[in-house]
């Protein structure tokens, strides 16, 4: 498990508009908060459109976070959609010994050999649970569960609680349970390649 360097751990999310990168970033921030840590979650400050590549960010720290500028060298990069890797350089700025976590069935082709790579088939998890929004499998919540495996100081329990808190008011208990289950399965199935 990685350590928090300089007291700050930074995560960058890559997805497509509508895949819930911002919500995923917020869930991890809340999970960190539940662990008693300080946190920030924010979208890339741009105009978002459904389907277009988007980024979101999470910062985690043991101390109050005073940094407000963008994240240029993340410790962890989470990719919600492997197809995005052909148009976006997802490992750009990723720290040496940093972690790349990809929603993928196959081992992605990565140029860099100084990083650790983890994969989990989040799309299949959502399909088997019938966790769909407008017919499209939800990938952000399983990826938060998978992130619990690679994150320092943030455990699965906090992530599951954060997933629950995020959806219970808007989706009700049934759908929330599915989201929590998806996060749990992703945590169990994520593997290093």
């Amino acid at each position: 498990m990685a350590r928090i360097s300089n007291g700050l751990y930074e995560i960058r999310w890559h997805g497509r508009g509508g895949q819930g990168a911002v919500t995923g970033a917020q869930i991890l921030a809340e999970a960190a908060f539940l662990e008693g840590l300080w946190c920030q979650a924010f979208p890339y400050f741009g105009a978002e459109r459904r389907g277009a590549p988007v980024t979101a960010y999470t910062r985690i720290s043991k101390k109050p976070i005073l940094v407000h500028s963008a994240i240029y060298s993340p410790d962890l990069v989470i990719v919600l959609d492997p197809s995005i890797m052909s148009i976006v350089d997802v490992t750009k700025g990723l720290k040496e010994n940093g972690t790349l976590l990809v929603n993928s069935r196959e081992i992605p082709k990565i140029e860099r050999d100084d990083i650790r790579v983890f994969i989990v088939d989040a799309t299949s998890i959502s399909l088997e649970l019938d966790l769909l929004v407008a017919g499209i499998p939800v990938v952000n919540t399983p990826m938060t569960g998978a992130a619990a495996k690679v994150l320092p100081l943030v455990g699965l329990e906090s992530v599951l609680e954060a997933v629950h808190n995020k959806f219970i008011d808007s989706l009700g208990p049934e759908k929330t349970k599915l989201n929590v289950e998806a996060a749990k399965r992703a945590y169990d199935r994520v593997r290093e390649v």
């Binding site: 917020q26 921030a29 809340e30 920030q40 979650a41 979208p43 976070i65 407000h68």
Partner: peptide
Amino acid sequence: LDAFILSHTSMP
């Protein structure tokens, strides 16, 4: 409050 930097950034 600064646009996005605070308005759209989640914090405790």
